[in-house]
Computed example of a mutant assay.
Amino acid sequence: MAKPEALLRVEADLEHGRVRSAIQRLGGLISAYPQDLELRARLADACRRAGDVPEAGRWGFLTEDAEPHEIAAFTRKNRSATDRLRLLHLHGEEPRGLGPLAQPRYAELAADAARTDVRPPKDDALPPVPRTASRPAAPAPPLGWSLVDLLTALAVFGPVTVVVCVVIYELVAAVFASPHP
Score class of each variant (00 low, 15 high):
114 A>I: 05
181 P>L: 09
65 D>M: 06
14 L>F: 02
2 A>T: 01
3 K>Q: 06
68 P>M: 01
34 P>L: 09
135 R>T: 07
32 A>V: 12
65 D>Y: 10
130 P>K: 08
137 A>M: 07
151 L>T: 04
123 D>F: 09
89 H>Y: 07
77 K>R: 12
173 A>W: 03
136 P>H: 04
25 R>K: 15
11 E>C: 12
7 L>H: 02
100 P>S: 06
149 D>N: 12
154 L>Y: 06
133 A>W: 14
66 A>T: 02
142 P>W: 13
46 A>V: 10
180 H>C: 04
10 V>R: 02
153 A>E: 15
169 Y>P: 00
34 P>N: 04
143 L>I: 14
148 V>P: 01
8 L>D: 09
16 H>Y: 09
88 L>S: 15
117 D>Q: 13
8 L>N: 03
166 V>T: 09
179 P>A: 07
5 E>L: 10
119 R>L: 10
11 E>Y: 15
65 D>N: 06
78 N>V: 06
145 W>T: 11
2 A>Y: 04
48 R>Q: 06
44 A>Y: 05
8 L>R: 08
73 A>N: 05
40 R>T: 12
181 P>A: 13
176 F>G: 03
127 P>R: 10
98 L>A: 11
5 E>A: 06
47 C>R: 13
124 D>G: 04
32 A>I: 12
157 F>W: 06
113 A>G: 05
139 P>C: 05
24 Q>W: 00
4 P>Y: 04
72 A>Y: 01
93 E>A: 09
59 W>T: 00
43 L>E: 01
110 A>V: 11
8 L>A: 14
42 R>P: 02
174 A>G: 03
174 A>Q: 07
26 L>M: 12
45 D>V: 01
50 A>G: 00
75 T>A: 11
34 P>T: 09
136 P>Y: 04
62 L>T: 05
152 T>C: 08
139 P>K: 09
70 E>T: 03
29 L>G: 00
173 A>I: 05
65 D>Q: 04
157 F>C: 03
76 R>Y: 09
105 R>Y: 05
146 S>E: 07
73 A>I: 12
16 H>F: 15
115 R>T: 08
149 D>F: 02
165 C>Y: 07
